[in-house]
Amino acid sequence: MPAELHANAVVADAHNDLLMAVVARPPARWASFFRERWLPQLRAGGVDLQVLPVFIDDGFRPEGALRETLRMIECAHVIAEGNAEDVRLCLDGPQIDAALTEGKIALVLALESMPGLDANVELLPTLHRLGVRIASLAHWGRTPLADGSGEDATASRLTAAGVAAVAEMERLGVLLDISHLGASGVAHVLELASRPVLATHSSARALRDHHRNLTDDQIRGVAATGGVVCVNFLPGFLAADPADYTVARLADHIEHVASVAGVDHVGLGPDFVHEVFTDLTPPCCEDPAATVDFDVMATLPGLAGPSGLPLLTAELLARKLPEPDIHKILGGNLHRLLTTYLT
Results as ranks from 00 to 15, higher is better:
residue 218 Q to A: 14
residue 218 Q to M: 15
residue 219 I to A: 04
residue 219 I to G: 04
residue 219 I to T: 07
residue 219 I to W: 07
residue 220 R to W: 00
residue 220 R to L: 02
residue 220 R to H: 02
residue 221 G to Y: 08
residue 221 G to Q: 07
residue 221 G to N: 09
residue 221 G to C: 04
residue 222 V to N: 00
residue 222 V to D: 04
residue 222 V to P: 03
residue 222 V to C: 10
residue 222 V to L: 05
residue 222 V to F: 06
residue 222 V to A: 05
residue 223 A to Y: 05
residue 223 A to G: 03
residue 223 A to N: 03
residue 223 A to W: 04
residue 223 A to Q: 01
residue 224 A to L: 07
residue 224 A to P: 04
residue 224 A to E: 14
residue 224 A to F: 08
residue 225 T to H: 10
residue 225 T to C: 09
residue 225 T to N: 12
residue 225 T to Y: 09
residue 225 T to K: 12
residue 225 T to G: 07
residue 226 G to A: 08
residue 226 G to D: 10
residue 226 G to T: 07
residue 226 G to L: 07
residue 227 G to W: 13
residue 227 G to K: 14
residue 227 G to I: 12
residue 228 V to M: 08
residue 228 V to F: 05
residue 228 V to A: 09
residue 228 V to T: 08
residue 228 V to R: 06
residue 229 V to G: 03
residue 229 V to H: 01
residue 230 C to A: 12
residue 230 C to T: 02
residue 230 C to E: 03
residue 231 V to P: 11
residue 231 V to E: 11
residue 232 N to F: 12
residue 232 N to E: 12
residue 232 N to H: 14
residue 233 F to D: 11
residue 233 F to W: 13
residue 234 L to I: 12
residue 234 L to V: 14
residue 234 L to P: 00
residue 234 L to Y: 11
residue 235 P to A: 01
residue 235 P to T: 12
residue 235 P to C: 06
residue 235 P to E: 10
residue 235 P to F: 08
residue 235 P to D: 11
residue 236 G to H: 05
residue 236 G to C: 00
residue 236 G to R: 02
residue 236 G to M: 06
residue 236 G to Y: 05
residue 236 G to K: 00
residue 237 F to D: 00
residue 237 F to I: 02
residue 237 F to S: 00
residue 237 F to R: 08
residue 238 L to Y: 07
residue 238 L to A: 04
residue 239 A to D: 15
residue 239 A to C: 05
residue 239 A to R: 09
residue 240 A to K: 15
residue 241 D to C: 05
residue 242 P to M: 12
residue 242 P to R: 14
residue 242 P to G: 14
residue 242 P to E: 11
residue 242 P to K: 13
residue 242 P to T: 11
residue 243 A to K: 12
residue 243 A to Q: 14
residue 243 A to M: 01
residue 243 A to G: 13
residue 244 D to I: 00
residue 244 D to G: 08
residue 244 D to Y: 01
residue 244 D to Q: 15
residue 244 D to V: 00
residue 244 D to W: 02
residue 245 Y to R: 02
residue 246 T to D: 13
residue 246 T to N: 09
residue 246 T to S: 15
residue 246 T to C: 13
residue 247 V to R: 04
residue 247 V to H: 01
residue 247 V to C: 05
residue 247 V to Y: 02
residue 247 V to F: 05
residue 248 A to W: 03
residue 248 A to C: 01
residue 248 A to K: 11
residue 248 A to S: 15
residue 249 R to C: 11
residue 249 R to G: 02
residue 249 R to M: 15
residue 249 R to H: 01
